[in-house]
Design a protein around this nucleic acid. Sequence first.
DNA 1: CGGATACCGTCCGGGGCAGGACGTTCCCAT
DNA 2: ATGGGAACGTCCTGCCCCGGACGGTATCCG
Lengths: 176, 176
Amino acid sequence: MPVPSPPSAKLSVDPTAMPDGGKAADVQAADVQAADLTWLLNRAAARMRGELDAVARGHGLAGVRDWIVLTALGVEGGRTQLQLGRELGVDKTTLTSLLDRLEGDELVVRRLDLRDRRARIPEVTEAGRRLQTRIAVARDEAEARLLAAFSPDERRLLRVLLTRLADSTAASGPCL
Amino acid sequence: MPVPSPPSAKLSVDPTAMPDGGKAADVQAADVQAADLTWLLNRAAARMRGELDAVARGHGLAGVRDWIVLTALGVEGGRTQLQLGRELGVDKTTLTSLLDRLEGDELVVRRLDLRDRRARIPEVTEAGRRLQTRIAVARDEAEARLLAAFSPDERRLLRVLLTRLADSTAASGPCL
DNA sequence: CGGATACCGTCCGGGGCAGGACGTTCCCAT
DNA sequence: ATGGGAACGTCCTGCCCCGGACGGTATCCG
């Protein structure tokens, strides 16, 4: 048995079988219905996360979270730590230690807000930006590798569905 | 901003908008392409997990994991702790403490294997079975609630895609 | 029959993460 | 002006989780 099977489900569908053409996967078997969605989601997330974690570590970071933070800062700066944490779903205390490490590696700097002397505004350094772009490439490769069995349509579809699912009124638990 | 946005992505697609008809969601915008898949996966998984955790806790369990274990045991017994752990992606030590608690609550018993006196074979008690079925109902309700915006086809499709993604040669990181 | 090796489950130690309390600063009302 | 309440970030603490070491057992091989 190559893969652990989700509880309460015996999938007769071969998950690795690619539905050939460029069309999105046809829903072919009702058995899938029985699978536990929570299980599948966590499993898939864990898998991808592990893969990306390895990538990040290979480039000197501690994990994906570092890279996520770096990217978020690169896209749009000027946010306080708390704002950043809320947006990323990371606890403020966790973000503190995380930034401590990143700052120690000269990848970010905490500029203090001139308007509000309580707040520190994290900012990516040039080195951080370089590292970020370098990892982005590796990430794309890794993702492509994991999505090798997916047609372009399926990839987009997966993103759409996940986006809709991830969206929610209350950002319940922490993520990442 | 109701929802934290993934880094390196501005989704112009309204994720809550249901593509009306019963057909699967049309891939409507290329912007989605930019989103980080790892982020989406973890976000979605965290959300669903949080929801299901609450359900489990409401029924006296500590979290989803308890319920997962209970279900797995109910579906097929006779496995040793190590086998079970491997199949579920749970570390053996974690499974030990987990079973300790469940056993304390009289939901499972550790029967010792007659063939191999090293091994303990966890088994669901009648009470555990009752609890399991009770939670299964609540889980279905919760999942249905989370998937309210999805058409039946989309739900099946999501399962198919996730299954294919979760499947992998190496079960890398722990899940759940 | 006896020793060596591999294996199952448990216990212990280290590390990471989140919640609560605290110091500092801001904002607003009086 | 000034005092009270709220907010931002950090430190401290407790919890959970995994990796490694240990006792007990099975299996293999001489």
